[in-house]
């Protein structure tokens, strides 16, 4: 008798791309445990955030590795007032590009702002379970 293990169905973000792959499933399982994964090329060592399954330089396979940086500076932002249809109920919301000390960048919502965002302000990496299937990384001030 073969026991079937049931994979948890997970998607990234508020309006998710449903085209899943085993690589992305691993990324999301780690995110479910509040770990943000980058990827590193197994051949040339180049690192990518967000992760890629294939190296942009040599097309070799990459492996997922936990990102150890958690604090960043706000590189740029937008306050989305008129949103795409899939996120219209959530508007207005703030999307920010944060830059970690290593230079790696990440695009996500800032969810706890009390005032206006400012370029250069400090950001901290956070996580959110949006619903039973959707989860995301986010920025906190």
């Amino acid at each position: 008798m073969v026991l079937m293990t049931e994979e948890k169905e997970l998607y990234l973000g508020y309006a998710s791309d449903k085209a899943m792959t085993p690589f992305m499933q691993k990324f999301l399982e780690a995110l479910d445990g509040e770990k943000l994964m980058m990827s590193k090329c197994t051949s040339c060592g180049t690192e990518f955030l967000p992760p890629r399954q294939h190296c942009q330089k040599c097309l070799s396979e990459c492996e997922l590795q936990e990102l150890t940086e958690t604090e960043a500076k706000l590189h740029s932002y937008v306050i989305v007032d008129f949103a795409p249809e899939s996120l219209s109920s959530k508007a207005p919301y703030v999307v920010a590009i944060g830059e970690f000390p290593s230079g790696k960048r990440l695009t996500a919502h800032i969810t706890n702002l009390m005032g206006m965002p400012e370029v250069g302000m400090s950001l901290k990496l956070g996580y959110e379970h949006i619903d039973a299937k959707k989860l995301t990384y986010k920025w906190l001030v």
């Binding site: 508020y14 989305v80 795409p84 899939s86 996120l87 508007a91 999307v95 695009t107």
Partner: peptide, 28 residues
């Protein structure tokens, strides 16, 4: 809103679209 949705799908569907980055948002 639908037109904005379609144009947002010209961003990276995996890493940008989930955050509702519309076409004007990229330029903002």
């Amino acid at each position: 809103a639908t037109a904005t949705e379609y144009m947002s799908q010209a961003g990276d569907m995996r890493w940008e679209y989930p955050f509702g980055i519309s076409f004007p948002a990229f330029y903002a």
